[in-house]
Simulated scan of single mutants.
Amino acid sequence: MPEVIFPGPEGRLEGRYHPQKEKDAPIAIILHPHPQFGGTMNNKVVYNLHYTFHKMGFTVLRFNFRGVGRSQGEYDQGVGELSDAASALDYLQSMNQNAKHCWVAGFSFGAWIGMQLLMRRPEITGFISVSPPANMYDFSFLAPCPSSGLIINGAADRVAPPKDTQTLVGKLHEQKGITVTHEEMEGAGHFFEEPHMQPMLDHVETYVRRRLTETSR
């Protein structure tokens, strides 16, 4: 997979870009967990989400937030990281100007950043939020949530307790015209350690394929 370096707000950002042959293939960016707790674009959940989207026919980009790996800059409490994500989406769109659909997927901290990006970019048609840390970050900006998506978490998550995720989903369900699908996986923790990783990816794939089928009718 080609390594890419593209411009970010604080210097270069390092990514992995995996294109499709079709010029109008849908596009997706994948956002990694917290930079100060070892989160990188090579996190297992992020890596596997990347390849799951590519297998479904998406051109995919995952990248390191500022200060991680070869990406320049320093951790910025989520503010700069949101700008990094916007720059990554700009880069991906510039390479794929005929893309029919645009998705964002994030894990943990990356799910929080992804949901904020969703609010800023009306062209995003779907989202995947894996283990959103609703106990640590304020998600009240999702008012209203601009597009439908999937929130998936583990029932045994000790980092982001399920009750906080359930509260978040409950608020999002109150909105018209938007369907937020929620999957809570029995026995799975925050990081979807084996044997829970593949079932989680299967849920994601089933959801995304259904959405793509609906929009192609």
Score class of each variant (00 low, 15 high):
Pro2Val: 05
Ile5Arg: 14
Pro9Val: 15
Glu10His: 14
Gly11Leu: 03
Gly11Tyr: 02
Arg12Cys: 04
Leu13Lys: 04
Pro19Thr: 08
Lys21Met: 08
Lys21Arg: 10
Glu22Tyr: 05
Ala25Tyr: 02
Ala28Gln: 05
Ile30Ser: 09
His32Ser: 05
Pro35Ser: 04
Gln36Ala: 04
Gly39Val: 06
Asn48Phe: 14
Asn48Ser: 13
Leu49Ser: 07
Leu49Glu: 04
His50Lys: 12
His50Gln: 13
Phe53Lys: 09
Phe53Tyr: 14
Phe53Gln: 11
His54Lys: 09
Lys55Ile: 01
Val60Ser: 08
Arg66Phe: 01
Ser71Tyr: 02
Ser71Phe: 05
Tyr75Gly: 05
Tyr75Arg: 00
Asp76Trp: 06
Gln77Pro: 00
Gly78Phe: 02
Asp84Tyr: 12
Ala86Thr: 14
Ala86Glu: 15
Ala88His: 14
Asp90His: 10
Leu92Ala: 09
Leu92Cys: 08
Gln93Leu: 12
Ser94Asp: 04
Asn96Lys: 10
Asn98Val: 02
Ala99Leu: 01
Ala99Ile: 04
His101Asn: 03
Ala105Val: 02
Ser108Gly: 03
Phe109Ala: 06
Gly110Ile: 00
Gly110Cys: 05
Trp112Ser: 04
Ile113Phe: 00
Gly114Met: 03
Leu117Asp: 10
Pro122Asn: 11
Glu123Tyr: 12
Glu123Gln: 15
Glu123Arg: 15
Ser129Phe: 07
Val130Asp: 12
Pro132Gln: 10
Pro133Ile: 12
Pro133Val: 14
Pro133Ala: 15
Ala134Leu: 03
Ala134Cys: 04
Met136Tyr: 13
Tyr137Asn: 06
Ser140Tyr: 05
Ser140Gln: 09
Leu142Ser: 08
Pro144Val: 06
Cys145Val: 07
Pro146Glu: 08
Ile151Val: 15
Ile151Tyr: 04
Ile151Leu: 11
Ile152Ala: 11
Asn153Glu: 00
Asp157Arg: 12
Arg158Thr: 14
Val159Phe: 07
Val159Thr: 15
Val159Ser: 13
Pro161Ile: 13
Pro162Phe: 11
Thr167Tyr: 10
Thr167Leu: 13
Leu168Ala: 06
Leu168Met: 06
Lys171Pro: 00
Leu172Thr: 03
His173Phe: 00
Gly177Leu: 05
Ile178Ala: 07
Thr179Pro: 01
Thr179Glu: 14
Met185Lys: 10
Met185Ile: 15
Phe192Pro: 01
Phe192Ser: 11
Glu193Tyr: 12
Glu193Met: 14
Glu193Val: 12
His196Asn: 14
Met197Gln: 12
Pro199Ser: 12
Pro199Ala: 12
His203Trp: 05
Val208Ile: 11
Arg211Ile: 06
Leu212Phe: 06
Thr213Gly: 01
